[in-house]
């Protein structure tokens, strides 16, 4: 099968005299005959054709190589996951419930998060990762509680709240199943859509 990536790869040859192809990837005009121009497909074998990809501006050497077969081999096979019914709602992790805090101040310390989030239950684990370049806090924290109720209380109380002068958002980290993207409701009907509308937990 001649994949879109194959065709697309030609666009990157500097001596390619058909420069129109490159434009086609940028200007999307449904009425143009160019609308049927090749659509760059995701290289990943895992995702394959399951993602609806609109024409994109592509860049990089990765489009010029044919490594799909190898990648197929690499990422095929079984991936372990914790048992889940695939439905909506937060997913329990192996030892507890994980929440994500975003908008964390770059100078925040673990103690600041302990103080703010410790009141909803004992924090079993706290990851406050740093920006590798600056050494400051990257902007998010992952917190583990033992019980669903503790995590739920923390989310309810802290989401949209303030921490060190910055507004933070707090939500579950893991979900039982896929979510439907907000901005893609208008796309044409396809299979494998999630059953229920996306919700805030």
């Amino acid at each position: 099968m001649a994949t879109a990536a194959d065709v697309d790869a030609l666009d990157f040859e500097p001596d390619d005299d058909d420069l129109m192809d490159e434009d086609a990837a940028v200007d999307v005009d449904a009425s143009s005959p160019r609308a049927s121009a090749p659509i760059p497909k995701l290289k990943s074998a895992i995702t394959g054709g399951s993602v609806a990809v609109a024409p994109k501006k592509t860049k990089g050497r990765g489009f010029r190589e044919e490594t799909d077969a190898e990648r197929n081999n690499r990422m095929s096979g079984r991936f372990d996951s914790l048992d889940s019914d695939g439905g909506p709602g937060p997913e329990r992790s192996i030892e507890g419930w994980i929440i994500l805090v975003t908008g964390v101040h770059e100078e925040a310390q673990e103690d600041d998060l302990q103080n703010a989030f410790g009141e909803f239950g004992e924090i079993k684990n706290l990851h406050l990762n740093l920006d590798r370049r600056t050494g400051f806090v990257k902007g998010y924290a992952l917190i583990e509680y033992e019980s669903f109720e503790e995590a739920e209380k923390a989310i309810a109380a802290m989401d949209g709240g303030e921490l060190l002068t910055q507004n933070v958002n707090v939500d579950w980290a893991f979900s039982k199943g896929p979510f439907r993207r907000r901005n893609n409701r208008r796309r044409s009907p396809r299979g494998n859509r999630s059953r229920s509308p996306r919700r805030r937990f």
């Binding site: 372990d80 975003t102 998010y140 579950w172 980290a173 893991f174 979900s175 979510f179």
Partner: peptide, 25 residues
């Protein structure tokens, strides 16, 4: 996926669904 054939040749393959908040971050 993490494959190291050194000593034990097991491939670690894990998958989990994230919430939109995590993707957004």
């Amino acid at each position: 996926a993490n494959n190291s054939n050194y000593k034990n040749d097991t491939m670690i393959r894990k998958e989990v669904f994230l919430t939109p908040s995590v993707l957004k971050e």
